[in-house]
């Protein structure tokens, strides 16, 4: 296990060391000490590393991740795992706004709550939130799955494209063009797998599915008020 003290050794050294593992990983297990809410921790990784952040992280932790497993033992600031391509980011505490924004792939797990705009413009990432999510989550979500074991805030899935949303608790309101949809066997299968990988014991049958009504896909004057 490689230990890196962020407070004494600085951010640039950390990311450079982790990114240098991309070609041929020399060390696969890393521990980041004293994160103290710092920004851009473990960004741009591209190797199958296990990185554990011992404490709360600031903005964009695990940003654009490829292949790596990043675990935050604390809360994460805005934009955790933004634009993730592959790999896994786990936040053991709460996540702030924009968790998993524009992510293309991989799995983001938030053990606590996520605040607003969770999964905004998601493009294929899977996100599982054990707690609740805030307003405008999955705004313009294009692909992937967002699973919420708790409740969802206002305007869930506004202007959604083809992403799949699963919520166990209540939904304060659905956004424009987002509707409840039938839960079919293939969805239950998908959900079973996601919950398992996300270390959640929630039951797939307890969830409801939401997705796009596809009414905004081509402009129609009768829907103009919704733009």
């Amino acid at each position: 296990m490689q230990q890196y003290d962020l407070e004494t050794d600085g951010l640039r050294g950390l990311n450079a060391a982790l990114q240098a593992q991309a070609a041929e990983p020399e060390h696969t297990a890393w521990e980041v000490l004293n994160p103290r809410g710092s920004h851009a921790i473990a960004v741009g990784l591209n190797a199958p590393l296990d990185v554990t952040v011992r404490g709360p992280a600031g903005y964009y932790c695990g940003g654009m991740n490829q292949q790596a497993n990043v675990r935050v033992q604390g809360s994460a600031g805005p934009g955790v795992a933004e634009n993730m391509m592959s790999g896994r980011v786990i936040v053991e505490g709460d996540a702030s706004q924009y968790a998993g924004a524009t992510g293309h792939g991989g799995l983001l797990v938030i053990k606590g709550n996520a605040s607003s705009r969770c999964g905004i413009s998601m493009k294929g990432i899977d996100i599982v939130v054990h707690g609740n999510i805030g307003h405008m989550s999955a705004f313009m979500a294009q692909g992937g799955s967002l699973v919420v074991c708790g409740d969802a805030g206002d305007a869930l899935g506004d202007s959604i494209y083809e992403a799949r949303l699963f919520v166990r608790g209540s939904v304060k309101s659905l956004g424009t063009d987002c509707v409840e949809k039938e839960m079919r066997p293939e969805h239950l299968d998908l959900l079973t797998g996601l919950l398992e990988r996300a270390e959640s014991d929630a039951k797939p049958e307890e969830f409801r599915r939401y997705g796009s009504a596809r009414k905004l896909y081509n402009f129609d004057v009768d829907h103009a008020d919704e733009y």
Partner: peptide
């Protein structure tokens, strides 16, 4: 902060 992230990457 976004620019910091892009530079770090």
């Amino acid at each position: 902060i976004k620019i910091l992230e892009l530079r770090e990457i």
